[in-house]
Amino acid sequence: MNPTFLPWLITITCLLIVASAFTFVISSSRTRNEDYDDIVKRSYKFRKIFFIVFLLGGIIITSLTMKNLPYDAHAKVSGDVIKVNATGHQWYWDIDKTHFIVGQPVIFNVTSADVNHGFGIYNDKLTLLNQTQAMPGYINKLVHTFDKPGKYKILCLEYCGLSHHAMVAELTVTEQ
């Protein structure tokens, strides 16, 4: 599944709920109910339910999504790991290895020689799979395991000057 599909689905669903609430209120706005205290009372009751649902949802989502964060993945990864240095320059990538094997974990040591860049790994369908920032003076260790053979691209995801869009490198992934 495309990694952005679920966030997209959740966003669209929530946007539709908000739009429905506004449509409902607009459609009922032209008639007047003089008993505003009663409206407020009912409204506050519903607001409390809404708040609790939101809070519970937030706690559940947080507990589900706080696992396997990318920050210390390099310390946990095991097996036949390959380490690769990737350095951003205005306006090209200097990557010391561009051929990888399916299933083999790769630690990209990402940095920059000049300004901030963004190291985004794209598959052949131009779907963004993983990323980290490339910052001068820092090394960001990005762990990625390619699960399919093919041509992958590295696109720059942080604006770095007039040829920002030209910062594209290619990686090749094979079964063996």
Partner: peptide
């Protein structure tokens, strides 16, 4: 009010670290 409430939704979604990995700076 509609715009404000709606804009918060994709913002919150993108603030989830795993989502940010595939949405940040897109």
């Amino acid at each position: 009010m509609y715009g404000w409430a709606s804009g918060v939704i994709p913002a919150i979604v993108d603030a989830t670290i795993h989502v940010n990995t595939v949405m940040h700076n897109t």
